[in-house]
């Protein structure tokens, strides 16, 4: 349905800085190279300024395979080293079911229903869920 939007060179995924949070919105099909480029860009953006959180909005993504899954996991690991939290937001049901079947449960990643909730989760003023860390446990 959605045509690949990222050319092998050129088109980049926008990385928006909102306060101390980076908002990355993925759309459609992402070339491997573009995904790796994005990973580098996020790393640089975190290092360059005081970022406390990264939100990756994937509500417009129809496919997450193990390659893209690895990119998410590495972004989160990298961010953690620089004291920033990563939240993947808006994963579609079909994508979630497929990832579970694939064996990719991304235990280290925090998740949210949508970008808005992810931002709220990361903002220091947010009222955290009671006994909140339950969602972060990794098997």
């Amino acid at each position: 349905m959605s045509a690949p939007i990222a050319g092998s060179s050129g088109t980049q995924v926008p990385v928006l800085k909102l306060g101390t949070v980076l908002l990355v919105t993925l759309q459609g099909d992402l070339y491997d190279e573009a995904a790796e480029q994005l990973q580098r860009n996020i790393g640089e953006a975190i290092a360059a300024s005081s970022v406390t959180g990264v939100v990756i909005d994937i509500s417009g993504v129809e496919i997450v395979d193990s390659f893209l899954g690895r990119v998410f996991a590495e972004v989160a690991a990298h961010a953690k080293l620089l004291a920033a939290q990563t939240v993947v937001a808006g994963m579609r049901p079909a994508v979630a079911i497929t990832l579970v079947e694939l064996g990719l449960t991304l235990p280290g990643l925090r998740t949210a229903l949508n970008a808005e909730e992810a931002m709220r989760l990361l903002s220091p003023a947010s009222t955290p869920l009671h006994h909140s860390p339950a969602r972060q446990e990794s098997p």
Partner: peptide, 26 residues
């Protein structure tokens, strides 16, 4: 990316449900 797109279209044409399409494309 072209392989993914082709498989998505072929699966949709055959009447696969959204979840099965996604599994096959993945």
């Amino acid at each position: 990316a072209w392989v993914r797109q082709h498989v998505r279209q072929a699966a949709a044409q055959l009447g696969f449900g959204l979840v099965d399409q996604t599994k096959l494309v993945t």
